[in-house]
């Protein structure tokens, strides 16, 4: 096509047309994403409460962050949350994917139900589970009561609140990860599995020795997604506990959200640190891709 409009004039016209297509969408993308991203970095060197003039304070906000016990607590909570949710959600979604990787008709129903939590607003998920976790008479504790167990106050107990929130995150998104892994499983050629079966491999061996290694790309994608999504967790925490009790569920974003409008520079420094953290799983993926193609 470029050949049809060869020459300098043709190329210049092609450039003009292309940019005429790009600008209407590129302007908002830069204005509402890249500009704020840069602005956040800039603001992190100022002290500001949204009123009056921002005051330049150098790296003070980063020093405050690093010495803030609450920020450290939020890093710790986010780390525990990330590891816990990743392990449990991965296990559950892999198990479900393996279970559903058969031609049974009932499989479609199970898949559909597993996806229901993934499509609803996170706020609604938080509301439903807050109800389920109600200490006296809540559905979960009623079920436990049937077995003679006196259920605790899940969200009000500092030891239990974080695991309780993590369960909600697993519930919400395991269907998506299951879908990705199921897609990976379905791409494995039948002949490979049949060959392993003929060679006398048991179901267990066939899965771990043959199929699992072939899930490489899907596994990595799910892992990166899990970490990426865990770092920025906010909605469900805010709806269920607002970071409490006693900062037990205070994730990074939850912490920064409380400072957002009164301590702008500090919150901006926090989000900059978060952005750097998010780059970790992403560079992991890029490195792994390089390795796979090399």
């Amino acid at each position: 096509m470029a050949a049809r409009r060869g020459g300098v004039i043709g190329r210049r016209r092609e450039n003009l047309t292309a940019w005429a297509f790009l600008l209407p969408g590129l302007i908002p993308l830069v204005a509402f994403l890249y500009w704020p991203l840069g602005h956040a970095f800039g603001l992190s060197f100022f002290q500001w409460n949204l009123l009056g003039e921002p005051r330049f304070v150098g790296t003070l906000q980063y020093e405050r962050l690093l010495t803030s016990d609450t920020f450290r607590q939020s890093l710790y909570v986010t780390a525990v949350y990330t590891v816990g949710v990743s392990v449990v959600a991965y296990g559950l979604s892999l198990g479900t994917a393996v279970l559903l990787n058969r031609g049974l008709r009932i499989v479609r129903w199970v898949r559909t139900v597993s996806l229901l939590p993934a499509i609803i607003p996170m706020v609604v998920a938080g509301v439903i589970w807050k109800f389920i976790y109600e200490p006296t008479g809540g559905p979960l504790n009623q079920v436990l009561g049937v077995f003679g167990i006196d259920g605790p106050a899940w969200l009000q107990n500092p030891q239990l609140a974080l695991p309780a929130v993590m369960v909600v995150s697993v519930w919400k998104d395991f269907g998506i990860y299951m879908l990705v892994l199921l897609g990976g499983l379905q791409q494995i050629p039948r002949e490979i599995e049949e060959a392993a079966a003929i060679d006398g491999a048991s179901d267990w061996q066939r899965f771990w020795r043959v199929k699992f290694p072939m899930l490489g790309a899907a596994n990595l994608f799910v892992l990166v997604l899990l970490i990426f999504n865990a770092f920025k967790v906010f909605d469900q925490v805010w709806v269920m506990t607002e970071g409490g009790p006693g900062n037990a569920t205070l994730t990074i974003i939850t912490f920064l959200y409380t400072r957002l409008l009164t301590d702008v520079g500090f919150a901006a420094a926090g989000t900059t640190v978060l952005f750097l953290l998010v780059l970790i799983p992403l560079s992991l993926q890029i490195l792994a891709r390089r390795k796979a193609t090399a």
Binding site: L26, H39, L50, A268, L279
Partner: peptide, 30 residues
């Protein structure tokens, strides 16, 4: 199409997928 700046635009788009909205809450508000 082939145009000047194509690689930069593609990079801007792909990198944007990785920027969590939560990171820009503060400056977006301002």
């Amino acid at each position: 199409m082939r145009f000047a700046g194509q690689k930069v635009v593609l990079l801007l788009v792909i990198a944007a997928i990785m920027i969590p909205a939560q990171v820009i809450l503060v400056p977006l508000y301002v």
